[in-house]
């Protein structure tokens, strides 16, 4: 009798709850960006209207490359691509950032704070550095673009 009782109890033990399958407690938004990353790829680095930001370090486990293509007339970001070596949250942060900055002016894009990325993706405290890296990446890309333009216009005015 005792065994029968235990046996029926063991039945529920073997009926696995569906929640077990959920991916290691990542937020659904992180999973969404991770599984369907937006704007993966590369732009031509030598294009004068493309700014490239490469931040992070392999030793730290995160490297982010973010590239923007800027329309000179409007000063807006017309195309954006990223590649990231890092955890799911790093990939999601960069993917979200590319979506966010498309169509923005450089000034607006440069003003995006990491807290916004962290909030949008509900990043836990241990993953906050991923959002900081995304902020660094867009800033670095904007700076690279500005440097390129300054150099280009500099040479133009010098030759004129």
């Amino acid at each position: 009798m005792l065994r029968t009782t235990i046996f029926s109890a063991s039945r529920s033990l073997f009926a696995k709850p569906a929640s077990l399958v959920a991916v290691r407690s990542y937020h659904p938004k992180v999973i969404d960006h991770y599984e369907r990353p937006r704007n993966v790829g590369s732009l031509n680095k030598s294009d004068p209207f493309v700014g490239t930001g490469l931040v992070g370090a392999p030793a730290c486990g995160d490297v982010m490359k973010l590239q923007i293509k800027v329309d000179e007339e409007t000063g807006k970001i017309v195309d954006v691509k990223f590649k990231t070596f890092g955890c799911g949250s790093a990939i999601a942060s960069s993917s979200y950032m590319t979506e966010r900055v498309r169509g923005m002016t450089l000034e607006d894009a440069g003003a995006i704070k990491n807290t916004e990325v962290a909030k949008e993706l509900s990043l836990p405290p241990v993953k906050l550095h991923c959002s900081m890296l995304a902020e660094d990446a867009i800033k670095s890309a904007i700076n690279d673009y500005k440097r390129k333009r300054a150099a280009a216009t500099g040479t133009v005015s010098a030759s004129a």
Binding site: P37, L54, G56, A57, V63, K65, K83, T84, F85, H129
Partner: peptide, 22 residues
Amino acid sequence: MSPLWEMVQEGIDISKIEWAQH
């Protein structure tokens, strides 16, 4: 989607790059 893989494919030695330590 790894920038490191892309660099290696382009023949860049990533161990020689001075990475900014975040």
